[in-house]
């Protein structure tokens, strides 16, 4: 008992003040890309050529955040001339098109469905389905339950049964072998329900696009309401998206 108290004193309160106070991530973090549209076409072409995810559109000078793994190779290739990854972790989007970006995203709160805010603004229960996720998306979603993020203080919880849930949060490129289980879980959630695609895998197949063992795009199976890009999304990216979209 004494040890419990001693440890409690040593640990103190570690819960983040976010979103009341902003958080600054370390400068090496790769978040929202800043794109220089006046960059020379040849540099953009070089970036597009080395991009492992083929997510750079040279004509429109955009990056598809639904495909990007934020590996940072284009930043290095262009020496920051075309792309610079900022520390801004606010990347959630309400539509797939918004993720194809020239360097900014529309305000998520304004594009969220208003009836969702009314229905789920005070209490949101989600069922997580990993459909061939590599466990980084899963792990960085799980940390939202640790004391630093303390997700439940916002009335948001991950629950054990789809019957108790208001929606599903899907990670992974959706392997053929998980497709049926994913659809069954979706069916088991009572309507009206929310679908969240988390991580570039569930949005576009991520690193596994093109494999004939994966579906690669959650939208092909069920309609997605909220997109959270990243490989994996930073926990703050997820937290920001959930708060903006539902609160």
């Amino acid at each position: 008992m004494l040890k419990v108290i001693k440890n409690r004193m040593e640990q103190g309160c570690k819960t983040s003040k976010y979103p009341k106070e902003p958080i600054q991530l370390y400068k090496r973090f790769r978040g929202m890309p800043r794109i220089n549209a006046s960059c020379s076409q040849s540099v953009i072409q070089q970036c597009a050529d080395i991009c492992p995810q083929d997510c750079i559109d040279t004509k429109n000078k955009t990056i598809d955040l639904g495909r990007c793994t934020f590996c940072g190779q284009c930043e290095v290739q262009s020496k920051g001339e075309f792309v610079l990854f900022s520390e801004n972790f606010e990347l959630g989007a309400a539509s797939r098109e918004h993720l194809i970006t020239g360097g900014s995203l529309p305000a998520l709160a304004e594009h969220s469905k208003q009836h969702f805010k009314k229905l789920f603004g005070r209490s949101l229960q989600l069922r997580q389905v990993s459909a061939a996720g590599c466990n980084s998306c899963e792990a960085d979603t799980n940390v939202l339950n640790t004391p630093f993020f303390d997700l439940s203080r916002f009335g948001i919880d991950f629950v054990a049964s789809p019957r108790h849930a208001d929606g599903i949060h899907v990670t992974g490129p959706i392997s053929r072998n998980m497709t049926q289980a994913l659809l069954d879980t979706y069916e088991a959630v009572p309507s009206p329900k929310v679908v969240i695609a988390s991580g570039c895998c569930s949005i576009s197949g991520g690193p596994f696009y093109g494999s004939d063992e994966v579906v690669g795009d959650l939208n092909k199976l069920i309609p997605v309401d909220l997109y959270i890009p990243g490989c994996p999304p930073h926990p703050l990216t997820t937290l920001h998206a959930l708060l903006q979209f539902f609160k």
Partner: peptide, 14 residues
Amino acid sequence: GYQHRGIEKMMPSV
């Protein structure tokens, strides 16, 4: 097997 993404098959072809 639920997580199978076909990685070994992909590697030589990408």
